[in-house]
Design a protein around this nucleic acid. Structure first.
Length: 262
DNA sequence: AATGCAGCCAACCGCGTCAAA
DNA sequence: CTTTGACGCGGTTGGCTGCAT
């Protein structure tokens, strides 16, 4: 299913994620948020690229994702949205709560593209037969009448659509995947949570005590020196390279959500 | 039982955009 | 205005799974 495990020349891990890595990433983001994807792997104790972490979180670990089979309503909506938007997967994801753009893209490519093509052929056949009959009638009744072409009908439907159609609008659609973070509400929910036994419908309850042992909070940077025993995560010192603006934005972003005391 | 093949999907890659310096 | 870095998006790939032969 997933790609086989390998390492690039910088020792960055590639390929399928294991459960331990998932737990680390999930626990870290639920505790600190994703304040900088580039630095996150180092702080979370992961030998992965920031890009890989972001992808894993967005497409698989986010607690609001469904992960189940697509319903007929969802399939219909995807087909409808694809007719209107084309391959704008992230825009479509914003209209489908609990689905990632990657999931929708895969769904389209593996199931719906074929179905949509077949439907289109049926419609074209029907239209062709219908238009021949209609043309014959219209030609008799009104020889000057122009028949609206398929493309014009499609365009009219598109222009009338109230859905998000520009890039700038996307961020305000339903939920921005880029702005997702764990709120205090989630923390409250998880503390009161009673398991139903269904993995995919349950909120994630990280075992913080075991999984944060080798993690670094952004506040660790202030200390200037951090020591821990994980070979996968080198000691971190506050250096000139580190962007204080990034750190400031982290504070701004998460201060109200995070309890800084261990 | 062994092999081949197609379907499926998680993950990677490259490029575009945007904001900050 | 230019450069740089972070992020997000869409296309593509690699390999697992299940079915057919």
């Amino acid at each position: 299913m997933a790609k086989s495990l390998s390492f690039d020349k910088n020792g960055v891990k590639k390929g399928a994620w294991n459960e331990e890595e998932d737990d680390k990433l999930r626990a870290y983001i639920q505790r600190y948020g994703h304040w900088n994807w580039g630095l996150l792997p180092q702080f979370a104790g992961l030998s992965r690229s920031g890009k890989s972490c972001r992808l894993r979180w967005m497409n698989y670990l986010r607690p609001d994702l469904k992960h189940g089979n697509f319903t007929k309503e969802e399939d219909d909506l995807i087909v409808d949205l694809h007719n209107k938007l084309g391959n704008k997967w992230s825009t479509m994801a914003a209209k489908l709560p609990g689905r990632s753009d990657n999931e929708i893209k895969n769904r389209w490519n593996t199931h719906l593209k074929k179905r949509a093509h077949e439907d289109e052929m049926i419609v074209l056949e029907n239209e062709h037969e219908g238009s021949i009959e209609l043309d014959q009638v219209e030609q008799k009744e009104n020889p000057n009448l122009e028949v609206l072409h398929e493309g014009e009908i499609f365009l009219e439907g598109y222009l009338e659509s109230p859905s998000c159609s520009s890039g700038t609008e996307l961020s305000s659609c339903w939920m921005s995947t880029s702005d997702y973070t764990v709120s205090s509400d989630v923390a409250l929910q998880t503390s009161d949570y009673e398991s139903t036994g269904d993995f995919w419908s349950e909120p994630f309850l990280p075992d913080i005590t075991s999984s944060i042992d080798n993690m670094l909070s952004p506040s660790d940077l202030i200390d200037g020196y951090v020591s821990h025993d994980q070979s996968s995560c080198q000691d971190v010192t506050m250096s000139d390279e580190f962007s204080w603006s990034t750190f400031d934005s982290y504070f701004q972003y998460n201060n109200e959500l995070v309890d800084w005391s261990f």
